[in-house]
């Protein structure tokens, strides 16, 4: 069991990953990166950073599995109920009135945010008014999401409490079935969703989205990468469209982000006014 890794180990792993998989992790926020690397080293039962590097170099680690282990897995369904109420009452009806409305969620892992959005759209009668396009770091994430996720009882309890605070129209337990003491979300909720696997920086950006929900994912980047990702997000957003980030994230430290107008400071909803 590896408890921690130092700067040198981290650098060596980053360069082995870049060489073998062509994935550049050098601009990831250092604390989260080190913690995810420690998790991943242990997930492959390696006894040291060097042991892990050796496995990478020998081709004993599958890139999709690696990306799956590295992703920050956790959040909650209906995390921040006040945001989802705001989207339900104001912003989703507005964007869904535009023809061919597409909503982008480029950074999902567990599907919590995707299932939340789909429940909000379904309860508002808007599921056929918008297409949802969701990006995952690995194919394994996509399989899990399409399979309804597998939520342990504790996580469902937290999500259920969030849904109660959101004040939905239904019962939260009508959206999942229990299988082996775990909850599987009903995947018919995803009828209007397309889920793909691609690095956000490699996606096409041509102002195609009316709304982008990208919460708590900028946390994983240091400033240069954060800037690049924000540029991609804003270039992908239609003029008049909305970008939503995590409530303790900000666009303030990004030159590109400064062009966005804050329309709700508490929930971090930004509007694109100009190119």
């Amino acid at each position: 069991m590896v408890d921690n890794i130092g700067i040198v180990d981290t650098r060596n792993i980053i360069s082995a990953i870049a060489e073998k998989f062509g994935i550049d992790m050098s601009d990831y926020a250092s604390t989260i990166l080190r913690r995810r690397l420690v998790h991943t080293i242990n997930a492959y039962t390696c006894h040291s950073a060097d042991d892990f590097i050796d496995k990478v170099k020998r081709g004993a680690i599958d890139v999709d599995d690696f990306l799956y282990e590295m992703a920050v897995e956790t959040t909650e369904i209906f995390r921040d109920p006040s945001l989802w109420r705001e989207l339900r009452d104001r912003y989703l009806p507005e964007v869904c009135r535009t023809p061919d409305c597409q909503i982008w969620m480029p950074g999902i892992t567990t599907g919590d945010e995707l299932y939340t959005l789909e429940i909000v759209l379904a309860e508002s009668g808007l599921q056929n008014k918008a297409k949802v396009v969701a990006g995952c770091p690995s194919n394994k994430h996509i399989e899990n999401i399409k399979d309804g996720g597998l939520y342990d009882p504790k996580k469902i309890e937290v999500s259920e409490a969030n849904y109660t605070r959101y004040v939905g129209k239904s019962q939260f337990n009508s959206y999942y079935t229990m299988v082996d003491n775990h909850a599987k979300m009903k995947n018919e909720l995803l009828a209007n969703a397309t889920i793909y696997q691609k690095d956000i920086l490699k996606t096409e950006a041509n102002k195609q989205y009316r709304m982008i929900i990208y919460r708590n994912t900028l946390l994983q980047f240091n400033i240069p990468l954060y800037e690049k990702v924000i540029r991609k997000l804003t270039e992908s957003l239609a003029i008049g469209g909305y970008l939503i980030i995590g409530n303790m994230e900000t666009l303030e430290y990004s030159e590109t982000g400064k062009k966005m107008q804050v329309v709700n400071e508490n929930e971090k909803i930004y509007k694109k006014r100009i190119d």
Binding site: A29, S30, T31, I32, V72, T74, M248
Partner: peptide
């Protein structure tokens, strides 16, 4: 430290928040 986030200090003295597991 804000609600529902872990709070880290990064080298270079900036805060970093995280939604990693409890």
């Amino acid at each position: 430290a804000p609600a529902n986030y872990h709070m880290y200090i990064e080298l270079g003295n900036r805060f970093a928040l995280s939604t990693e597991d409890v």
